[in-house]
């Protein structure tokens, strides 16, 4: 009986990092967009928040695309 500790360890590490990063970026995206929508007094910062929000969503979309790639491959 040989337990593949390395594989188990990497599943642990990758899952933790990827989950936290994904949720973090997605939340930043949501927060960025809602700030851009509500805070129209700031002008420049609103645009920055909006751009940052879309960037975060793009990262998440890339992760989902990679997930589909893993399923298919």
């Amino acid at each position: 009986m040989d337990i593949d500790w390395a594989a188990l360890g990497s599943v642990f590490g990758v899952s933790l990092v990827v989950t936290v990063a994904l949720v973090g970026f997605f939340t930043l995206g949501i927060v960025g967009l809602s700030k851009a929508a509500s805070g129209d007094q700031g002008g420049g910062s609103g645009v920055a928040a909006k751009a940052g929000g879309y960037l975060c969503f793009a990262l998440c979309a890339a992760a989902v695309a990679y997930g589909i790639y893993i399923i298919v491959a």
Partner: peptide
């Protein structure tokens, strides 16, 4: 264990990031 720990940390993080934002404006995103 793996999934639970990841979900717990992610939940903490998301609540921390969105603490100053109105719940309604984020609901659609979530």
């Amino acid at each position: 264990l793996v999934a639970g720990l990841a979900a717990m940390l992610a939940t903490r993080l998301t609540f921390r990031i969105n603490r100053n934002v109105d719940e309604k404006s984020t609901a659609k995103g979530y």
